[in-house]
Design a protein around this nucleic acid. Sequence first.
DNA 1: TAGATTGTTAATCGATTAACAATC
DNA 2: TAGATTGTTAATCGATTAACAATC
Lengths: 211, 211
Amino acid sequence: MPKQKVSPAVVRRLPRYFRHLEELSLSGVTRISSRLLAQRLGLTASQIRQDLNCFGGFGQQGYGYNVENLRAEIGEILGVSRGTTAVLIGVGNIGRALCNNFDFARAGVGLLAAFDVNPALVGQSLGRIPLLHIDTLDAFCAAHRPAIAVLTLPRELAPQMAERLSRLGVRGLWNFTNVDLHLHEHDVQVEDVHFADSLMTLCYRARGEEP
Amino acid sequence: MPKQKVSPAVVRRLPRYFRHLEELSLSGVTRISSRLLAQRLGLTASQIRQDLNCFGGFGQQGYGYNVENLRAEIGEILGVSRGTTAVLIGVGNIGRALCNNFDFARAGVGLLAAFDVNPALVGQSLGRIPLLHIDTLDAFCAAHRPAIAVLTLPRELAPQMAERLSRLGVRGLWNFTNVDLHLHEHDVQVEDVHFADSLMTLCYRARGEEP
DNA sequence: TAGATTGTTAATCGATTAACAATC
DNA sequence: TAGATTGTTAATCGATTAACAATC
């Protein structure tokens, strides 16, 4: 669908566009200009027009953009209604918290199952998500072909698990372990959620110029 | 301490440098060249030298960098041993999960207390972290002057709470609510952890060029 | 038509990479 | 000394901003 190569910087802004357009749509706004949208997001109007034109001319001169239409277009681009499937590996604290509390569906993702090594956990309830033993992962992936794997297992197990998942056909890894994964050989995308890194970055910036 | 203005891109890489140098140091490596470190992090040697020289010449020609020394320097820059203080606002699922499971100390942050509106929660145990009523927030901040606030409250309450915390002297907001905070007037840094945005970004990238 | 606002090209800015003299 | 590797300057690349003709 993209007219041209879409830069990483643009991709990272797409969910924010989507979110704000959802809000606008819900509050009954039917039309918006790049100038007003920019104001809302803290960007420039120029940048927004530039970004959107990676995918096509969604606006109309003299009018602006139709909010609901633009929301739907960006939703399409992000694939939120495409039903991307996922599995979760490692039902420790963070894994359990995600299963129970994070609304995967809102991001357009269906979490099919969670896996763990601990047989004691298996069968336990995690909201509506079945909890399976890790030994059944290969068969499960062969049958259901999940696109995404959520990595919430202990960090020392992450690299080999990433390898394994990649061989099982997973296309993206949502990485909550505090390691940098390098899947050079494989065509797998990695998205890191590094809490500690994020917090350290904030501390540095918040400290500012003071002694 | 920085010789020059440090770009956001560099700041974002600092925790990764720190983490890898910790690992190297633990595995007994005493010395490393920019070339080898680059290989490890998936960066270029040039970039690493460029980054480090924002802060000073930590290396030595013909030798490279002393791992333990460099680790300590970057730790100093990030302020990990500085004892940054924090409060957490909103003890829902994610707030509780952070209190119980996230190791703030590893990022050099001391979590002083958690706050909630629900009086039923107050007094409940959250690991070692006291759980206080939100009405006591102003007095607490006046007394302890936390540098950072962790925002894990419902999204609709986030903007006004951000304002309030800013007036109470907080310098950084670690924002887990799915709203974009704009504190234009205030000199407050915001670091967003937007799970849904992160996952959508991954889905887009993982989909690649396929239909 | 006149006013508004896009789509798009050109200019600027910032970040990364390459090159190399300095030096351990 | 010879080899290695930094610190730093210059060149390249990418992303943002500005400008404006096209057009609704």
